[in-house]
C-alpha cells in the first residue's frame, strides 16, 4: 500500500481514507468470503474491518506495515463474525489425518463442492492460514504475524489443514471408486 496515502489517512484526510477503502474493499471481501464461506458474514466482516481501520489507523506506528496490520484487523473481524454462527468454533475433526489412503491408484475427480465441503469442516484458524498462504500467497512468517501465532504453529496448521482436505477428498472419492470397481 502507498505509505503516503496511509500517512494522509492517519492524519485524518478522508479523501485519502476513501482511496484506501476502495483499494482494500474488494480484496478484504474476497479474503473474508473464502475464510468464512458465507457471503453475508464476509460482507459484515469486511465492513467492520474497514471501520476498524479508520478507528485505529492512528495507532499504526509504521505505515510500511499497513498491509499486515490491516489484514490482522480483517482476520479478527472474521473470527468475530464466525462466532455469531458458532459459539467458540473449535477445530472439528471430521477425518483423521492418519487415515490410510486407499484410492488404489484411481484418481479422483475434484470438484468445487468436494473442496467446499472439506474446507467448511476446518476450523476458522485452519481456514485462515490456508487462505492467507494459498490465496494471498503470503509466506508463513507474514501469516504468523497476521494471525498472532508463532511460525511453527502456522506451519502446523497449514500441514494439518492440507492433510484434512486430502483425507476428505479421498473419502469423497471412495464411493466413485467403488462404483468404478463394480
Amino acid at each position: 500500500m502507498d505509505t503516503d496515502l496511509v500517512r494522509r489517512a492517519q492524519g485524518g484526510d478522508q479523501e485519502a481514507f476513501a482511496d484506501l477503502v476502495h483499494a482494500l474493499a474488494d480484496r478484504f471481501l474476497a479474503v473474508s468470503h473464502r475464510i468464512l464461506s458465507d457471503i453475508d458474514l464476509a460482507e459484515d466482516a469486511t465492513q467492520q474491518a474497514l471501520l476498524n481501520v479508520w478507528q485505529d489507523l492512528r495507532q499504526l506506528r509504521d505505515p510500511a506495515r499497513f498491509d499486515a496490520w490491516s489484514y490482522r484487523l480483517l482476520v479478527r473481524a472474521c473470527y468475530a463474525e464466525g462466532r455469531k454462527s458458532r459459539r467458540w468454533a473449535p477445530n472439528l475433526r471430521l477425518l483423521s489425518v492418519d487415515e490410510p489412503m486407499v484410492v488404489d491408484g484411481v484418481s479422483a475427480v475434484v470438484d468445487r463442492d468436494q473442496l467446499e465441503r472439506a474446507f467448511r469442516s476446518l476450523s476458522l484458524n485452519h481456514r485462515t492460514v490456508v487462505v492467507l498462504h494459498h490465496y494471498l500467497d503470503l509466506p508463513l512468517d507474514r501469516v504468523a504475524e497476521i494471525v498472532g501465532a508463532p511460525v511453527g504453529t502456522v506451519g502446523s496448521r497449514l500441514h494439518y489443514a492440507t492433510g484434512q482436505l486430502r483425507s476428505a477428498l479421498i473419502a469423497d472419492a471412495q464411493p466413485t471408486t467403488r462404483e468404478v470397481a463394480r
Binding site: 476513501a18 477503502v21 476502495h22 474493499a25 471481501l29 468470503h33 460482507e43 465492513q47 474497514l50
Partner: peptide
Amino acid sequence: EDASRIAAAVLDRV
C-alpha cells in the same frame, strides 16, 4: 464478489 456497496457504507459512517 462486489464490495462497492460495502465501501460506500463504510465511507458514509466515517
